[in-house]
Design a binder for these strands. Structure first.
Lengths: 263, 263
DNA sequence: AAAAGAGGTTTCATTGTACGAAATATGAAA
DNA sequence: TTTCATATTTCGTACAATGAAACCTCTTTT
């Protein structure tokens, strides 16, 4: 179990990345025994033992009450709270306002490794609602969040995202053709917001708008999501409120140049 | 910079804990340069460089756009989402119900290293509200959350928490005497919920109740917090709703034995 | 009650990795 | 241009991290 030294990992410390890999084997709050973990990662039991001891020493994993199982530790919650703190703290009040105004699920997401990553969320209280989870991912090409961000990337950044084989068909309406996607992104750019009308999930809709940082880069997006009927019928009210919110968040991040959009 | 091997760290891997320590130097979404980090932790620049490369290789830290600074990475958000997943997922709908019912801030917290750690939160939309942050900590002895949990610990677990020097006075009303605290905890146990009437923050109040797991251990607590006037005047309605929620969450965690409380 | 089994912990010798030091590159300021 | 400050790379060496195997501890089987 040895990775050859390449340009990319020339300066990485084996023990550290192996320890970090251990954190990845825990799915959804699983509790695992030493042997299970060592089987999953294919490392020697005694090595895994020592790496786990190290992670446990700093609270990144915890022993279960019976002392026989390991689980992810609360230190992760503490540290995660510090990630993108400025953006999240800034966006949250605006998201809350949208949430009470429309009582739909409000999402804040960024683009990470070609996917949309949800970093903040307020759930609708409707019994019939849509909600992913903070920390989970969605494809960019089927979501309003993703399209809202990608529409404002440079050609260089856009190109790798538009590989046809990456535009996976999730529903009848998912855009899978690079050419069509380019036209869609052009439209998103023109009107300042993106729509997902059942492209991810049949019957579910989403309206998303981008957030720009001080350099004018699209660093995140906010969206409202829910059943297509509710979202689309309220579209005329949602869109201006969402755009105003995103414009103000962008402004506070130091963005000024041209205005974000014209509805 | 060498820590002697003791019983506790006999099996820890130096490189791993040092790497994890690097994650601790980032406060509230700070972006730091290599030199700043190496100064803060007191390790050789070139060592820090390699540890950061390793953390970056797995997404636990990220380079800033200019490539000159490091920040905590989004991988932390992903991994944190898996911590205590069962408890949080189970509690959230009940918290949401309390939130819409009373429109006060609803908190979910656990006891970690003698402190209350907030792991989930729904903020009141009142302009005048109280809200800590997910991932932040409070003393146990001044909060309803803390007292609700601690009241149900065994004498062995309770004893170290009751050291007088640990019961720091935060306001006029904070309980700082171990004997008085024992009587307070007895009361909390009897009525099934805890009150914080300005013991943490003058004018702020909080009502908290414990959640028990399948072994009957108090693993968490839910609370409603806000301005004392609102919280205490609604106490008659809040308490039964909160207790019912906590009882149901506990039941779903596998707790059955005796009922949690009698109001 | 003894034996077997399964998993966790400890010891130990050895190797090769992680380390510090110093050289080199990069980039900003003067 | 030089100077300064910081990041990156190289290199030899010490000792940290490792695999193997022994040794616990607890549960299950006979």
């Amino acid at each position: 179990m040895k990775t050859p030294r390449t340009i990319e990992n020339r300066y990485v410390v084996e023990a550290v990345v192996r320890a970090l890999d251990l954190l990845e084997v825990f799915r959804e709050g699983e509790e695992l025994t030493l042997t299970e973990i060592s089987q999953r990662v294919g490392l020697h039991k005694s090595r895994v033992f020592r790496l786990l001891q190290s992670l446990a020493a700093r609270g990144y994993v915890e022993r279960s009450a019976d002392g026989i199982r390991y689980a992810l530790g609360v230190k992760l919650i503490e540290r995660a709270a510090c990630v993108r703190r400025d953006l999240r703290q800034l966006a949250l009040p605006f998201m809350q306002h949208l949430h009470t105004q429309f009582n739909e699920t409000v999402n804040l997401a960024i683009l990470d490794r070609q996917e949309v990553l949800y970093i903040e969320m307020l759930e609708s209280s409707h019994p019939f609602r849509m909600a992913a989870a903070v920390g989970s991912r969605s494809p960019w090409h089927s979501t309003a969040l993703g399209k809202a961000i990608v529409a404002h990337l440079s050609e260089d950044e856009l190109h790798p995202l538009l590989q046809a084989e990456r535009l996976v068909k999730l529903t009848e309406r998912t855009i899978t053709d690079p050419g069509q996607m380019r036209r869609e992104l052009e439209k998103v750019r023109r009107r300042g917001y993106a729509l997902d009308e059942g492209e991810t999930e049949p019957g579910a809709a989403c309206i998303g708008a981008p957030i720009f940082n001080h350099e004018g880069r699209p660093v995140a997006a906010v969206s409202l999501s829910g059943p297509a009927e509710r979202i689309l019928t309220n579209r005329r009210e949602i869109v201006p409120a969402l755009l105003a919110a995103c414009r103000e968040i962008s402004r506070r991040l130091g963005f000024h140049q041209r205005s974000v959009a014209n509805v």
